[in-house]
Amino acid sequence: MTRWLPRVYLVLVYLMLYVPIGVLVVFSFNDSRSGYTWGGLSLRWYQSLFHNNAMVEAMWNSLWLALSAATVSTIIGALTALALHRYRFRAKKVLNGMLFVVMMSPEIVLAISLLALFLLVGIQLGYLSLLLAHVTFCLPFVVITVMARLSGFDESLPEAARDLGASDFTMTRTVLIPVIMPALLAGWLLGFTLSLDDVVVSTFVSGPSYEILPLRIYSMVRVGLKPEVNALGTLLLVFSLVMLMLSQWILIRSKR
């Protein structure tokens, strides 16, 4: 009994986590208008999704935002990780602490603080404000991913490069960047997904000029059930899964 009981328990918890997702996916192919009864197989909700111009535009907006936020946060995050790893500078602990606080603090606290900043400084709520906000909350995750990679590599490599005559910049370009490449890719993918899924921060810092997907879904699901959301959710799920598997594959491959 002591052997199978824990396993049954594990299975139950996984069922709890996956049954709702499974139901969502199955019902995205449901022909019925009602969200609860099965009306046969159909792709009609996927079609209606792509015929909805506002929806398609929000998708493109979100994609573009996620792309740019992931890229910018990867660049800044990688540089930060390198600086933390390589340089001694004053208040290194403060920098570390600030990143930690960003990661740990409730999203809503970050959201209102950024909103306050944007409004007072006069940054128009739209693409730019969303980008700045998304990069900020993605940053610590990229830094951690890259730091983990850096901490596992031979300290003498950069020194060897400098010894052979490379400048700091050349050494970074020819030695460090190739070493942390897998972590950069994984960090980028994580940033992309975080940006694509964010609701809390985006709710505060987006404006009417730039509608993004999560907020569109939010306004749809607040009232009643919308079958299109099933289709959209399924698409997002598949998309995230591909991204996750890609990032795991990159990380695992790089360890060989």
């Binding site: 709702p20 694509l196 899924d197 879904i217 997002l236 995230s240």
Partner: peptide, 8 residues
């Protein structure tokens, strides 16, 4: 990694 709104 999947959208929390969608899961809710």
């Amino acid at each position: 990694w999947t959208n929390s709104l969608v899961r809710t």
